[in-house]
Amino acid sequence: MIDEVVLETRGLTKYYGSVFAVDHIDLKIPRGCICGFVGRNAAGKTTAIKLMLGLLNPTAGTSKLLGCDSAALTPAIRQRIGYVTEGHRLFGWMNIVELERFQRTFFPGQWDGKFFAEMIEYFGLSKKQKIKHLSNGQRAQVSLALALSPNPELLIMDDPTLGLDAAIRRQFLSGMIEIIMREGRTILFSSHILGDVERVADRIVVIDKGVIRADCKLEQFRTAVKKVILAFEDSAPLQVDIDGLLHCRRSEKELAMILVGINDDKIAELAKSAGAEKYHIANMNLEDQFIEYTAPDGRGKLFKWEEI
């Protein structure tokens, strides 16, 4: 039970015509993990999530949620999984009370009505309001309440904070933290907002053009991706051959390199052997690291994060 893998994909692939939406992804999310699934637009996040939930059929590979094959998720398994769809799409004609009644029917014995009522009150929503009359942010709040009230073991959220204002985003994250504090809950959420990922996630998965480029602990990613600037007396060399170099930009007397998994001592050595006069390790926040990591010039490079 302790190291149980809650979400597993092996060689999961989906292509449309000749385009790989998702290209042989291997993931293993253990129980209790809060995994931030990040990638640029059209990287394959939504496709991957839909494949995991059995809403799309894979071209190749397998996917399992709670030990059950995604293409054949049983009702019992679906009852243990919460899903927040992209755009928080709900039935517009229903009001909040009707939606709650509808949703709770599918979680017999599991639904926390008190929690739902508290969330709705906290958000300042009126129960009689119809979904179509709510703003995007309010609809997101309802969607979150509907997904959290059954107290799911596994919560999958597709870009849950997209388009929400800062205050509602914060509420959303609070809701997630609430779930995190319950034992054995696992969350997989895709996001564009690195700040949210940094707050809440303990694991980061970077997907780029359908390929998983990184899959590791968040703190590992934070310490591994570094920007090193080498300054040269004369002109900077055209290229440097370093294991762990993602990509490198050259100006006349400087070389700005993005290195992955090289510790500070080794950087000093590298600077020396490259003949640099000085070197400087730049400070990067998670957003900077993500942007550099997914920059087109480094696209072909894959790193073995288990070894970093």
């Binding site: 914060r170 933290i177 703190e219």
Partner: peptide, 17 residues
């Protein structure tokens, strides 16, 4: 740990760390 995590809206593991 939990109280601070809830207050700052961050993962409790971060506070623990």
């Amino acid at each position: 740990v939990r109280k601070l995590a809830a207050e700052l809206v961050i993962n409790p593991n971060t506070v623990a760390r």
